[in-house]
Write a protein that binds this DNA or RNA. Structure first.
Lengths: 330, 330
DNA sequence: GACCCTAGCTAAACCGGTTTATCTGCGGCT
DNA sequence: AGCCGCAGATAAACCGGTTTAGCTAGGGTC
């Protein structure tokens, strides 16, 4: 038993294909009695329009896209993206086309292809670079897109972000209020826009603050921490750019006999089960809600709304056991 | 500048649309010189066939599907699925259509729809139920599918799984060798096939073993643990069905003043950063590789191979600090 | 020379929708 | 009566591919 097509519906209702199409899509051009008849027939036959055929005649593809550029193996540990995706899904009725690639070039080719093939109606852009070619690409393709997590305004694109600058400032002031002066930072990839933002906020509020760059993996967090703690004047507090690096750092400190938080305070960016269990002070943002917000923004753009920038609520610092008064203070 | 279509290629190469199609797809029916000319034109014009149009004429959709039935919010914490997805992606050149729904009925409707709409070429089935209607559905739809993680043989479907029975047996024998006699288990959803498998293995190797069911969340793991430790004769070892519940359980034990591993041994199913950091003894399987294997299996089925069952390597018990000699033994 | 077969190509149908152009009544207006 | 306008429907084109039927020229066979 094959699925009924619009032709079957039309035949069963005694109208033409075109009339059936108009009736099913709630458009004018058919009488109300005809429309009712077509709809009745369609529901009784269990008619489902083919998204493929619909996409072909330049209508909606009923899907949005997300491309992640990562070594796939490292991805699995990053709860952030999965939370984000889960949040997106919660607000989307359409499907998400997801692909993981290993280079920026592939990513761009994929966006172009998806759009050319009418596979997606729009896309999310994550991991925004300092001067990101994708922004221009989206504009030139005329492809609806939402920038996720890239602070500020990006060409004609809608944007959803949290204020990394203010967040970093709040973290530093918390540490300063505890008496910390030698504060270091284990940052993420320096090519990413939010890293630069945080860097700027960090260096403007911490004098002589040391920054070491990692790549969000436990290994990089561990080695960065070893480097920092091995210095002549080791920091009394370290701010990490994600949870995985922070946890690894805490572990290294323990192995080196550096007591947390007595001799070293640790703050993680992005809260997670990992931080909760490790009792790590963390900058908590609701990534799930963030994803949901991004989805709403994209749906709005797809619905024809003029692209706007939405600023997410400021991440909140959740103080747990890993941060405390600086050694020598109070 | 619009993207070139096959008509443009044909015109530029001086052949018909049909001939161009044959040439581009490496099929016989055109001379080698013509084929070379068409391919040259196509590449010089940057031709990309439209997957949408191709799917319409009952060819490949160049995508596979995965539907997850979860409350979206809980999903983000489960590293397992993201690891799995990452692994799948590593072996797939095509895209993954992902959707999270909240009920089994929606899931089934979605599979039917995707297939009817030619949106996917095949699907992964996860979280297999004891007697799962999806298996029958796939067969009747004629939809290529791979069962992921459902031990045993399922109708005409290919299957990729790890032997939960043997794994559970190995965990129990490890605990027994440490002198444990009162062993309990915090299981996952009882409707899932692998839960039943593990239950069977558990009850056949542990006499009077208590089983409490949870739903993979930290909360359920915590309350199950409280229940077990509050009993008249509390267990000296607990085996958890996932990492999140195990970590929550360890925390509860700590809060209740039950020393781990002196008075209570804890073993988690599925290793993760969480277990590594929490120093939890865990049953480690390479979920990433597992996903990759599932992807290969699906691609094989799509390629026309006869569906086979692939048994994954047996999960390996990684002994860390959370398991030790039973109190009173040795 | 008549016949058949095949390689190589073209034209056209098809997939399942949407969109446009066209046709048919019918009512209102002058 | 003659004309216009419009609602309601149909037929046909179109989207961009694949697939099938059909045509032609060349070579081999008897």
């Amino acid at each position: 038993m094959k699925r009924p097509t619009i032709k079957d519906i039309a035949a069963a209702a005694g109208v033409s294909k075109g009339a059936a199409s108009l009736a099913l899509n709630g458009r004018s051009g058919v009488s109300e009695t005809t429309r009712a008849r077509v709809l009745a027939v369609a529901s009784s036959l269990g008619y489902r329009p083919s998204a493929t055929a619909r996409a072909l005649s330049s209508a909606s593809a009923d899907a949005v896209g997300l491309v992640l550029v990562r070594p796939p193996r490292a991805l699995g540990d990053e709860a952030f993206f999965f939370q984000l995706i889960a949040g997106m899904q919660s607000e989307m009725s359409c499907a998400l086309l997801l692909q993981v690639v290993s280079s920026r070039a592939e990513e761009i080719a994929l966006y172009e292809r998806w759009f050319a093939e009418h596979r997606v109606d729009g896309v999310f852009l994550v991991d925004l670079l300092v001067s990101d070619p994708r922004v221009e690409l989206m504009s030139s393709l005329g492809m609806p897109a939402v920038v996720v997590g890239g602070a500020g305004h990006h060409g004609a694109l809608a944007s959803v972000w949290a204020d990394d600058y203010a967040a970093m400032t709040s973290v530093v002031s918390h540490l300063k209020s505890l008496g910390h002066r030698r504060i270091a930072r284990v940052a993420g990839l320096p090519s990413l826009l939010h890293t630069v933002r945080r860097d700027a906020a960090f260096s403007s509020s911490v004098v002589d603050g040391v920054v070491v760059y990692g790549d969000y993996t436990a290994e990089s967090g561990a080695s960065a921490t070893r480097e920092l703690l091995g210095a002549a004047e080791p920091p009394t507090a370290i701010v990490y750019d994600n949870d995985v690096m922070a946890v690894a750092g805490a572990e290294v400190a323990g192995a080196l006999g550096v007591a947390v938080p007595q001799r070293l305070s640790i703050v993680a960016w992005d809260d997670s089960v990992l931080c909760q269990h490790g009792r790590l002070t963390a900058l908590s943002r609701d990534t799930f809600a963030f994803g949901a917000r991004a989805a709403r923004a994209l749906l709005a753009v797809l619905g024809g709304a003029v692209p706007t920038d939405v600023e997410d609520v400021l991440p909140e610092l959740v103080v747990r056991g890993s941060s405390g008064v600086a050694p020598g203070s109070a």
